[in-house]
């Protein structure tokens, strides 16, 4: 565990020093900061629009950071040959991979926390201090964080066997499909003209794909009239699903990475 932690903290340091990530972060923070300037609508519309904007900026920026952060993770170490120095020490490959992943998670946590801090500030500027509204709103970034951890796991998994460019598009595609497929699948289930074979294949894909849509919980949070029963329990179940899926990706990554020639 010590080795994993050491690699994770080093990865965090590297991530913070990477300019491209900082630029993406700064763009995100800047957008969040200027969003309250959209105050042109009715009070309630303004709240709804502002919340949706702020949360979407955090989500979008975090997704880009998660992908950019993880696609280079293993290939860079191999290319720069730094991996040999690490693996020549008493460090297993699985520890290296886990360390890299947790480093990415830590980096995401730091960056998302910064954006969430600016979100709180923007919320405060526009709405004044309302502890209940803010607490409710903060649930979304927490769920986005789990979503990004899942996306980072996808990126780390692919980075064990594909090049960064391919990984960028592959992870992006998995994120896109993983976000949209559930809706298509439900439409397919409700459509009486869909064939049974299509439904079976759809269910299989829906089961195997990482389901990013589950973490898009912002709608009830930005529309205060929507009431959700047992919200906390729902979140726990959704997080549990994410943790299991991250486990799948990391174990699969370890298996692939273990067999890879470096």
């Amino acid at each position: 565990m010590k080795q994993v932690w050491a690699i994770a903290t080093t990865t965090l340091g590297e991530a913070i020093r990477r300019r491209v990530l900082l630029v993406i972060l700064l763009v995100g923070v800047a957008f969040i900061a200027i969003a309250p300037g959209l105050g042109v609508l009715s009070a309630r519309s303004e709240t709804t629009v502002l919340r949706s904007m702020l949360l979407s900026i955090i989500q979008l920026t975090s997704a880009v950071i998660a992908v950019v952060l993880t696609v280079y993770m293993i290939p860079n170490e191999i290319e720069r040959r730094t991996i040999y120095t690490i693996l020549s020490k008493p460090v297993h490959r699985w520890q290296f991979l886990l360390g890299k992943y947790f480093g990415a998670v830590l980096a995401l946590m730091v960056m998302m926390a910064m954006m969430t801090g600016v979100l709180c500030l923007a919320f405060f500027v526009q709405q004044g201090y309302r502890a209940d509204g803010l607490t409710q709103l903060l649930r979304a970034p927490i769920m986005f964080f789990v979503q990004m951890c899942l996306l980072a796991a996808v990126g780390v998994f692919f980075s064990t066997f594909v090049t960064p460019l391919v990984n960028f598009f592959l992870s992006g595609a998995v994120y896109l499909v993983g976000t949209t497929f559930s809706s298509f699948f439900e439409s397919m289930l409700n459509n009486p003209s869909s064939s049974n074979i299509a439904k079976i294949i759809g269910r299989l894909v829906n089961t195997l794909l990482p389901n990013f849509a589950y973490y898009n919980v912002q709608n009830p949070l930005i529309n205060p009239t929507v009431v959700i029963q047992d919200e906390t329990q729902n979140y726990i179940k959704i997080v549990a699903y994410g943790v299991l899926y991250i486990g799948v990706l990391l174990v699969a990554g370890i298996l692939v990475f273990d067999r890879r020639e470096v």
Partner: peptide, 22 residues
């Protein structure tokens, strides 16, 4: 893990999502 996430996905989380967030 694969079976676990699949079961959790299809038997628990999907219903929550369809009902509240879809």
């Amino acid at each position: 893990l694969l079976v676990g996430q699949g079961a959790l996905n299809q038997l628990v989380v999907r219903d929550i999502w369809v009902k509240n967030y879809m």
